[in-house]
Structures are given as structure tokens and as C-alpha cells.
Design a protein around this nucleic acid. Sequence first.
DNA 1: ACGAGGTCCTGCGAGC
DNA 2: TGCTCGCAGGACCTCG
Length: 273
Amino acid sequence: MPELPEVETIVRDLQHVVGRTIRSAELSHPDILRRVTRPKLLKDLPGRRIDSLTRRAKHAIFHLGDRRLVVQPGMTGSLLVYDRALTPAELKYAVLRATLDDGRLLVYRDVRRIGKLLWLDAKGWIKYDTALGPEPLEEAWSAEHFAGRLAGSRQAVKKVLMDQKHVVGIGNIYANEALFAAGVDPSKPGIRVGPEAAERIRTHSRRILEAAIRSKGSTVRDYRTGTGEKGNFQLELFVYGREGEPCKVCGTRLSGTHDIDARATVFCHKCQK
DNA sequence: ACGAGGTCCTGCGAGC
DNA sequence: TGCTCGCAGGACCTCG
């Protein structure tokens, strides 16, 4: 489940494809495309140079001349580069395969295809970019900004933290972790989270995201780095995936619920108020 | 304008 | 042993 640290890791690992030109492309499942058809994308890609590869929110952005290929890995998406032909097993989930001018293969792999590929021109990019909230590791996500968004919402604080309109890049794993670290009950309505607790959530979110980047992300299931390896931050999780196990801080049995946005929420009812 | 809830997609593991 | 079924969740959509 790539969130910000996982996509950041993938993008850093794949910088070696920058400067390469796409020679040809193949797409096995057009159902992952958004706002573009298969014939259009496959006609547009060949001959384009990868000018840069960046991250926005939980997405990887390939800058290809006047257009951008936005990769939203969703749950099970990953980006991999091969210097050999794919095995039949690898081919099964290789949704997009782009042959580069040095002969290597750039692959978007996605088992469940919850992920999406967007092919945007300059205008489409602006629309996409402006719909997203600030990056959590940048200045724009200030104490005032976050406290203001919380104060204006009756939604559960966990849902606000995961809402990409308010702040990007934080998904279920890191929302659970940040709220535990901040000592805030995930179900508390945003409007009832005071400025002090809001600031704890913001600073702990940043700290955890940065630590997770240093550990190359959390591999809970399918996530792999851009070099095909597992991340390591799953070893440092305090609550996610630990329902029923003892709280690492106080020993209380961790609670679990699906009441917030139908997502798995795990928390310590003693540490989080 | 906002919030609630449904939908997509497939592998995996629990349970019988 | 082999089957069914529930679950995982980011982004987007519709409905009220």
C-alpha cells in the first residue's frame, strides 16, 4: 500500500531511467487508464524522453516533454526496471511495459489494478495538482493550515488526515501511526481536536514519514522498492496490523475498528484520548 | 458544500 | 483436501 514514503523510495531508486528515451510500449490491461485510451497512450509514448521523475502525493510523475505520465500505485502497484526479458510469472502482472533506448524494460506492475495511470497535458496537470493539498514535508503544511482544516470538519480526525484535499501522502498505515504517536483517538471529530493536539499530530506525522523514508517504506504485503526489495519500516510500526496485540507503550490490548471510512483502524484506548 | 457509502480488482488465509 | 467467503484500501463516483 504505497503511501508517501513508499512512492518517495521508488522515485529515488528509479532516477537512473531519467534521460532515457522510450522506444516502444505495451499495455496489457487498459482498465487502469484514466482520461486516456490505450491507442492514444501507446501512440504518444514512443520517442519521448524521460526528462525527470518526481513524486507528488502518493504518485510517481514521469515528465515526458509536454506531457506527464502519472502513476498512482494504489494498493499493489510497483515500478521496476529489468535488463532482461520477463518470465511468464512476471509478465502476468506487468500492466505497462516500456522498452527504453538502452534496451532495459521499465515496468508498472499491479496485481489488483486498483492503481491508475493518467496521461496529462499541461492543463490537465494543473487541474490534477491544484486538487491536491500541500505536501506534508513542506512549509505549506503549517500548524495554522492543519488546525484550520481540522476545526472546519466534523469528520473523524483520521479521515481528515487521510483526505488528500487537506494534506497529501498519508494513507491508512501512517495515519494510524501518527495518531497513536500523538495520543489522539482516531475517531475524534476534527472540530473537537484542539490546536495543541493538532500540532502533535502534524509533527509526529512528519517525523514518522521521514523515518519511514529512511527505512525505504513499509512492506506489509506487495510493496517493493524501485530495486525490488522490501522496505523495513513495518518493523517499527506501533499499531498498524497489531490489533489484539499489546500496546508497545502501556501493554494494553490494542483495539480495532472499521468504523472510520471502512478502513482498518488500530489504536490504544488508554494512550489515545 | 459536505458527508456517507458504493465500486473497482485479485490473492490470500481463515474456517468448515 | 478442497472449497467458499471475507478482507485488504486509494481514488473516484453517486446520492441525499
